[in-house]
Amino acid sequence: MASLDIIASLLGIFVAIAGMTIALYSWRPTGNKNNLHSTTEDARTQTFTLAIDKIGSKSAGDRIAGIKSLAELADSWPYGRQACIDILCAYLRVPTKIGVDISDGSTGQNEALGRGRLEESSVRGSVLRTIAEHLHENASSRWHGCVFDLTGAVLDGGTFSGVAFTGGTKLIFRNAVFGGGTIDFSGSIFKDSVVDFSGATFSGGTVNFSRTEFSGGLIIFRNSSLAGGFIDFSDALFRDGEIDFSGSSFSGGAISFSNSSLSGAKIDFRRAEFAGGMVDFRGVNNFNSPPKFDDFSSGRPNKLFLP
């Protein structure tokens, strides 16, 4: 089965689940009567279903149109917003190997496969941009306080630069795979929110937290694996909140806190395994709230650098 068929099948399951969620949230008592579906709610449900049909299409243009339609619906439909977001995130969790099972190695097939991958990359980029645009403080419609579940997704880039993670927003990358590209959080604000990379694998690319401000909330890298790539906290301001690297493995790549200020946030590296990757706190401006490490009975790891 081609991956687009898998997308359509999986989205069908999500539609059923989301439909029950919408029915629950759409229920209203009106006077002495229970109104399960008003005419407006029925129209919105129909728009929701049509948008998902487009997202399951073999045409990249149709898939992007479906994404736009779902985003517009989420903007105007507070009670169905989380269901719309769940479908957008579900799309990103579906495997990306478009056409691999039908390629016969010929030039024509390989060219078609290449086009398919480029088109799919564009579609996935559209989903990530849509999410990020709605998390800016100046967005006309803000999706703060929602849950964005990208558990197990394979990602090669995305921009959340300048975003405000506030109001209980949860962005979940549990067990996700980052093999290249840049996930950019530079210049963002984290307050009363959760960004969860627990169990994620970093084998290449960059996760950029430079110039971010942490004034509350939780950033979780617990039990993650850094085998390559770069996690950049340079010039970040840690006022409050928690950054949790406990139980993580650093066998390659690097994490830098250069020129950052550790004035209040709690940073936890306990139970972490340092097996070749670099964790660098040199050049930190303020070390009033140092990170927590285990006692290194046999000496500090060679590539763990402290001020």
Rank of each mutant, 00 (worst) to 15 (best):
S3A: 15
L4N: 09
I6F: 06
I6G: 03
I7D: 01
M20E: 04
S26P: 05
P29A: 13
P29I: 15
G31L: 14
G31W: 11
N32Q: 14
N32D: 15
N35I: 12
S38I: 04
S38A: 07
D42W: 08
T47P: 02
L50C: 04
I52V: 13
D53T: 08
I55T: 05
S57R: 11
S57A: 14
A60N: 10
G61I: 14
G66Y: 04
A71V: 07
S76T: 09
Y79W: 11
R81T: 09
R81K: 14
C84R: 04
I85C: 12
D86C: 10
C89E: 07
V94R: 08
V94E: 07
K97G: 14
G105N: 10
G105T: 08
Q109W: 09
Q109F: 11
N110P: 03
A112K: 12
R115F: 08
R117K: 11
R124V: 02
T130L: 07
H136P: 05
N138H: 15
N138G: 14
N138K: 15
C146N: 15
C146S: 14
F148Q: 05
L150D: 02
G152D: 06
G152F: 07
V154M: 06
G158Y: 07
V163F: 06
A164L: 10
G167S: 15
G167L: 08
G168V: 10
L171C: 09
F173M: 09
N175R: 14
G181R: 06
V195Q: 03
D196P: 07
A200D: 11
S203V: 03
L218R: 07
I220R: 04
S224M: 07
L226Q: 03
G228S: 01
G229I: 00
F230Q: 05
D235G: 01
A236M: 02
F238Q: 00
E242P: 00
D244Y: 00
D244L: 00
F245K: 00
S246Y: 01
S248N: 01
F250W: 02
F250G: 00
G252V: 00
L262E: 01
L262N: 01
S263I: 12
S263D: 07
A272Q: 05
E273P: 00
M278Q: 13
V284W: 02
F287W: 14
S289D: 09
P290N: 11
P291A: 04
D294F: 13
S298Y: 10
K303R: 15
L304I: 13
L304K: 13
P307L: 09
